[in-house]
């Protein structure tokens, strides 16, 4: 907002994007595991300008009781933006967008979490967006997956997420806020890197079938980069210097 469309050059003649990145270059990503004392597992991520905290509680008793499932545990997820996380104050009540994102994040993690081991319990994931930038749902997912592993909740695989998109008629990795606003397409993807399964995919914007295939592959390559950073965060916490 405030910046006119014409002021932004999304892709310059040297092939650099509005924040100086190459087309296949992600933003700076930093993840730290185990940042909260009370949560069973937690993680903090900085992904571009996103600053996000994720905390996991459980498995624990389900309240209200009628939600409990006798064959398997249930997963709940709340993605929530702080009022101060965006330029114009956000009403703290959950918006429809936040409710939808909470749902898709939960469904992206569910294939990985072995809930069948914990009947009658719930695993709660709380995600707080302290500062929002483009691609906050992917960054939130990355932090949530690390927090789940930190909590010791059995997982079939990690879940790593990254977006790709179309900007100035070019498929690029990891869309930032300006590219999301002014670009042509945004495709967040979450991926289980060892089981090779896509657990989240959404798309806003128009792609030809060829661009679609390229975009999915680009996003998956981003997920693999994120996966290495998630692994490092967990290794740093649990194995310290020993793992190097």
């Amino acid at each position: 907002m405030g910046v006119k469309k014409s002021d932004i050059v999304l892709l310059d003649d040297k092939g650099l994007r509005c924040d100086g990145r190459k087309i296949d270059q992600p933003r700076r990503i930093m993840i730290k595991a185990g940042v909260l004392k009370n949560a069973n597992g937690s993680a903090y991520i900085e992904f571009g300008e996103n600053k996000i905290l994720a905390g996991v509680f459980g498995p624990r008793d389900v309240h209200p009781k009628h939600l409990a499932n006798t064959d398997r545990g249930i997963l709940r997820c709340r993605y929530h933006m702080q009022p101060f996380s965006v330029s114009e104050r956000k009403n703290p009540a959950p918006s429809r967008r936040e409710i939808e994102i909470s749902k898709v994040i939960k469904e992206a993690l569910e294939p990985a979490v072995m809930l069948e081991n914990f009947p009658r319990t719930v695993v709660d994931i709380f995600i707080e967006i302290l500062q929002a930038d483009g691609g906050s749902r992917c960054a939130a997912l990355d932090a949530a997956a690390v927090a789940l592993a930190d909590a010791g909740i059995p997982m079939r695989d990690m879940v790593s997420a990254c977006a790709a998109g179309k900007v100035a008629d070019t498929i690029v990795l990891d869309i930032n806020n300006e590219e999301d606003q002014e670009g042509q397409a945004d495709m967040p993807v979450a991926y289980m890197p060892n089981l090779e399964k896509i657990t989240l995919i959404q798309l806003d914007g128009v792609l030809t079938p060829q661009e679609y295939e390229k975009c999915v592959n680009t996003a998956i390559s981003g997920c693999k980069l994120v996966y290495e950073i998630q692994k490092k965060a967990l290794r740093d916490k649990f194995f310290g210097d020993e793992s190097q």
Partner: peptide, 23 residues
């Protein structure tokens, strides 16, 4: 495939992970 953070062990003909976190 490991399902927990920990130390993997191959013993006899079995594989397990001794977890470092969890309930």
């Amino acid at each position: 495939i490991a399902t927990a953070v920990g130390i993997s062990e191959i013993f006899d003909s079995g594989v397990r992970v001794i977890p470092l976190t969890g309930m």
